[in-house]
Each structure stands twice: as C-alpha cells, then as structure tokens.
C-alpha cells in the first residue's frame, strides 16, 4: 500500500540505514554526557536489596524521574558483597560522567536468562545478576550483589572459570563500551582461570579486586581508562 500519489514516490537508492548494500553491524556511538535520566534507574546498582543506589537524581528535576525504582524481586540466596571503585582518565583524574554495568552468575553458578540452559543448577528467583550504576561526581560507584559461583568456560567446555563479573564501562568520551572483568583477589580459582591466563601477567592485577572491608565483604575495583596502570580491556 502506498500513501503517495502515483508517480511521486521516490525510487532513487539512498545510502542510509535501509540500504541493503550497507547492511551490517550498527556502529557504536558514545552515550554522551546526558544519559542519566535515560539509562540508570534507582536501585540499578543494588542487585540484592531495595536501596536506590545506582542513579543520579541530582542531575535532573524530580518530576522527570520517570524510570524510578525497579520493582521488588524478593529474597536472594548467597553471600552479599559490595563492589566499589573509581573511574580514572589518562591524567589520573576521576571521570564524573561514566556508567558501569555488571553481569554475573548467581551464587550457585547459573546465569539468569534463557541462554544458560543448564537446568540442573538452580536459578535464584530473587536474583537477576545484571546491574547498572552511573558514577557519582567524584567518579565513584558502588554495587551490592552476590558473590558469583564458578561457571564453566563455554558450552561444551567444562573447564571452570574463577568467580568473576563481566563489567562494561560507558561514558562521555567513550565511543564504544570498554569490556573488562572483576575477579576477587582472595578467591579460589584465579590461578588457573582460562581468561586470566590470556592476560599478560604484569597486567593481571588490574582485574583482581582486593578485599578492603567487611560486613559486607567489600572489594575495590578501580578502572583506569588510559595510561599508567591502565585496566585490561577485552576484545570480546
């Protein structure tokens, strides 16, 4: 069906999103500086409770806070841990307009979501394992989540990975997400983790978060985007 009069429809090819000759991966673009009212929601950084951490309600008027709190999800099973850190730029200055995402398995080592088909390992109905936090004005973030269980390397490959979280870094000046991983420095399994083994030994420490406090166990994971002590980022 056409709404344009006969003979007036444009038929010349256009090099745009709908051009079959250009079909392929959509290019990345930065989140820019103004994502705070569109991406991080209150509670996005609390994967285990009902606190509102993760959002930046100070950056836009309250009447425009349409994302609000995520709905309550019920109790979780496992050990609650806190993950804290600061994002730094190439001059060692905190980055105040970055955003962090984490993705982790539940305490039993199962991923929530349809792609983990290992039905013999229990899901935790109260725990999804995805979190999102806008950093604060000093570049800091804080997540509350569960210490993840160990997961197999890949479908059909039962070598076990050490407990870890996938971490994505976004922000103004970051054209593409930077992907890294948080490992727990005091955890079992780091010594023979197949992913850590691919990281040059001198740089592995950037992925190993030290335990810096208790109640709950708190791990520090600073992220250096550029330069001295640069965090290891992955080509996934």
């Amino acid at each position: 069906m056409s709404d344009a009069p006969e003979g007036l429809r444009r038929t010349a090819p256009r090099a745009d999103n709908q051009d079959p000759a250009l079909f392929g991966q959509t290019p990345w673009q930065t989140v820019g500086p103004f994502f705070h009212y569109g991406l991080p929601w209150k509670g996005g950084a609390d994967l285990v409770g009902a606190s509102g951490i993760g959002a930046r309600p100070d950056l836009f008027p309250a009447e425009h806070d349409v994302l609000h709190l995520a709905p309550p999800r019920g109790p979780v099973t496992g050990e609650v841990v806190a993950l804290v850190g600061t994002v730094f730029d190439g001059e060692g200055k905190p980055v105040p307009d970055a955003m962090i995402e984490i993705w982790g398995a539940n305490a039993a080592g199962r991923y929530h979501g349809e792609a983990d088909t290992r039905t013999g390992i229990p899901l935790d109905p109260g725990f999804i394992g995805f979190g999102r936090a806008a950093v604060d004005a000093r570049g800091g973030f804080r997540f509350l989540t569960l210490r993840p269980g160990r997961v197999p390397l890949a479908p059909g490959d039962d070598r076990r990975q050490a407990p870890h979280l996938a971490v994505g870094v976004f922000g103004r000046g970051l054209i593409k997400r930077l992907a890294t991983r948080l490992y727990f420095a005091d955890s079992e399994g780091n010594g023979d983790d197949p992913v850590l083994a691919l990281v040059p030994e001198a740089r592995r420490r950037t992925l190993l978060a030290p335990r810096i406090a208790e109640e709950p166990p708190t791990y520090r994971f600073d992220i250096v985007l550029c330069g001295d002590g640069e965090t290891v980022f992955f080509d996934l």
Partner: peptide, 21 residues
Amino acid sequence: LRSPREPLVRIPPTLTELTGP
C-alpha cells in the same frame, strides 16, 4: 584521555559473554 592505549586482550566468548538478562 579516555581511551585505552594498550591493545585489547582478545578472548573467545565464554558462557559469561554468551548470556544476558
């Protein structure tokens, strides 16, 4: 000042990267 200078470390996808919420 916000882009890595070190090469990215290439990893084959693991169960972690193949799953999502």
